[in-house]
Computed example of a mutant assay.
Amino acid sequence: MLLEIVSPEGHLFKGEVTAVTVPGVDGEFQLLNQHANIVSVLAAGTVKIAVNNLNAATEYSPKFTRNDKEQKLFLAIQSGTLEMKDNKIIILVD
């Protein structure tokens, strides 16, 4: 599935991912391939992105931390909104 993360400064991430875990206002939840359409408000916390190959991630900002062993990227956010539709996730963060 395709993930885009956008902030007021511009694109922070764009690429194919296998899973995304986000801090929802009612708790953390995960989006996997072919997840149902959803729109959600995000709370302060960490967006966790799982990819097949970190080196193949299309583009991502230096604001991310990474765990090479688990093939994951992490982004701390203060708030945001998320939309998943047609296997594409767009996250707008502050």
Rank of each mutant, 00 (worst) to 15 (best):
M1T: 03
M1Y: 07
L3T: 05
E4V: 09
E4W: 00
E4A: 10
I5Y: 11
V6T: 07
V6W: 02
V6L: 13
S7L: 05
S7H: 06
S7I: 08
P8W: 05
P8L: 09
L12C: 01
L12T: 02
F13A: 07
F13R: 01
K14W: 03
G15H: 12
G15V: 13
G15C: 12
E16P: 00
E16F: 08
E16I: 12
V17T: 10
T18A: 12
A19N: 11
V20M: 06
V20R: 07
V20E: 07
V20Q: 02
V25H: 02
V25R: 08
G27P: 04
E28H: 11
E28Y: 04
F29D: 13
F29M: 09
L31E: 10
L31D: 11
L32S: 12
L32F: 14
N33G: 02
N33C: 00
N33K: 12
Q34R: 15
Q34I: 03
H35E: 08
H35T: 09
H35Y: 11
A36I: 09
A36S: 14
N37L: 03
N37V: 03
I38V: 14
S40N: 10
S40K: 05
V41F: 06
V41K: 09
L42I: 02
L42K: 02
L42G: 05
A43C: 05
A43N: 14
G45D: 04
G45Y: 05
G45P: 01
V47C: 06
V47N: 03
K48W: 01
I49F: 13
A50V: 06
A50C: 04
V51W: 05
V51C: 01
N52D: 15
L54R: 00
L54T: 02
L54S: 08
L54E: 06
N55M: 06
A56P: 01
A57W: 00
A57D: 00
A57T: 13
A57G: 00
Y60P: 00
S61Y: 00
S61E: 00
S61N: 13
S61K: 06
S61A: 01
P62Q: 12
K63W: 01
K63G: 00
K63E: 08
F64E: 12
T65E: 15
R66C: 03
D68K: 10
D68Y: 06
D68A: 14
K69Y: 07
E70Q: 15
K72C: 11
L73A: 07
L73Q: 09
L73P: 05
F74V: 04
L75M: 08
A76T: 14
I77L: 10
I77M: 05
G80K: 04
G80S: 10
T81Q: 10
T81M: 14
E83D: 11
E83S: 14
E83C: 03
E83I: 12
M84E: 11
K85Q: 13
D86N: 15
D86V: 02
N87T: 03
I89V: 15
I89L: 13
I91G: 01
L92G: 02
V93T: 10
V93P: 02
D94R: 04
D94F: 00
